[in-house]
């Protein structure tokens, strides 16, 4: 199939996603990422810590772990869809970062993303494809934050590339 041979124009891909996102907005709510990941973290923490998880009120009050939380399945779907797309277009192969510095950057980046998502209650997807189009005040705050952050991140990244 042509679809699996050529790179798709991202404008077409995102326009199609926007239309689907409107349907989901009508049924349940706009596309978000972060809530599902938090639930997964909570479920994992529950599995590891058992009763001890009650010592962290966050998991009682803000995010009681539950398996039937729909946002988890958006994320699992993305993993599945990307896997199918990669296999069918023969683009699936194991990629491993080579340098230690890459692993360190990824680790720090991941930690900052996870911490930031929870602090804000949202991530970049809900910022641009949920809150902003709903014209939520938080969308504008979040957008200013992410642009400032990406700018600072780019400065740090450039410094590291030069070094």
């Amino acid at each position: 199939m042509e679809f699996f041979r050529k790179t798709l124009d991202p404008i077409i891909a995102l326009a199609a996603l926007a239309v689907l996102n409107i349907f989901m907005f009508l049924l349940m709510g706009a596309w978000t990422v972060g809530g599902g990941e938090t639930m997964m973290t909570g479920l994992a923490a529950q599995a590891v810590l058992g009763e001890d998880i009650n010592r962290l009120p966050f998991w009682n009050i803000v995010f009681p772990p539950q398996l039937d939380y729909w946002k988890i399945y958006i994320s699992l779907g993305m993993l599945f869809g990307a896997f199918v797309g990669a296999v069918l277009s023969k683009e699936f192969y194991w990629r491993v970062p080579r340098h230690l510095s890459e692993w360190i950057l990824i680790t720090i980046g991941g930690l900052l993303m996870g911490f930031g998502i929870r602090l804000a209650y949202i991530c970049n997807v809900s910022t641009f494809f949920g809150l902003m189009p709903e014209m939520n005040m938080g969308g504008y705050l979040a957008m200013s934050g992410i642009i400032a952050g990406a700018w600072v991140g780019s400065l740090i990244y450039k410094k590291i590339l030069e070094a």
Partner: peptide, 16 residues
């Protein structure tokens, strides 16, 4: 927190 959280996120996503 909305601004601060996404600020940290923005740095993190570029690094990662």
């Amino acid at each position: 927190n909305t601004f601060a959280g996404l600020f940290l996120f923005g740095i993190g996503m570029v690094l990662a």
